[in-house]
Amino acid sequence: MENNQVKERGMKILFLIAACASILAVVLICLFLFANGLPAIFEIGPGKFLLGTKWDPTNNVYGILPMIVGSLYVTAGAIIVGVPIGVLTAVFMAEFCPPKLYKIMKPAVELLAGIPSIVYGFFGLVALVPIIRNLFGGSGKGILTASILLGIMILPTIISISESALRAVPRSYYEGAVGLGATKERAVFFTMVPAAKSGIFAGIVLGIGRAIGETMAVIMVAGNTAVMPTSILSMVRTMTANIVLEMGYATDLHREALIATGVVLFIFILIINLCFALIKKKEA
């Protein structure tokens, strides 16, 4: 009896420590980011930093608006490319897929999620870039290429979460619709999909999170010029690319400005996660 109680308490503490470790990591990262980044933002001036269109570290001019815009454009492009394909794939896999094909598709989607991002980048560089260059001219690197590549990269997230959301919808919804005379397609698209709406949105939001935070793949296909993009074929530099490209050399204010870029990125991710939490709450 006594022995069991000791064990019980011991395990409780162990679990508590495990839980604290991840919270501690988040807190430390927040502290590090804000402690190093915020002073730089105020030294440069929040307006100049967030709305400045010129990034010229050699002369201590740090405006990250082109990078913010770049991240937003590329992410928006990824949504346009990835969401329709992802959601439709999920609907297919949950409702229409023959079991034999499903046995191939499910592992294929999972494999897509496991491919390292640098491999995606290399694929983009040797496969996508020449196609875009031949179709539209220019260098082939830019918003469009990065959007397509990111669209592919966020597919697994969207597909697997949407699929499980669809599968979680009670079967009676489908049966009811069919019983009322709806065709299979109608039953799926007008009862199942709306019923799984919040789960599907959660998948999309997580996909957005992945797209905005992606770095290595984007660096290889986006062209990375720190100027405001003027067309969908313009080269862009995302916030993540900005940090990676220059961190190795940066000193003093330049380094802090890069960390401050990380702060802005962190706030974006925070907003995305907040959206995710809100959707989840609505669902519950």
């Binding site: 260098s139 690197k141 660096i219 290889m220 062209g223 990375n224 100027v227 530099r237 990676v244 490209l245």
Partner: peptide, 8 residues
């Protein structure tokens, strides 16, 4: 050149 691609 502002429109030069940057690679690392």
């Amino acid at each position: 050149y502002d429109n030069a691609e940057v690679t690392n």
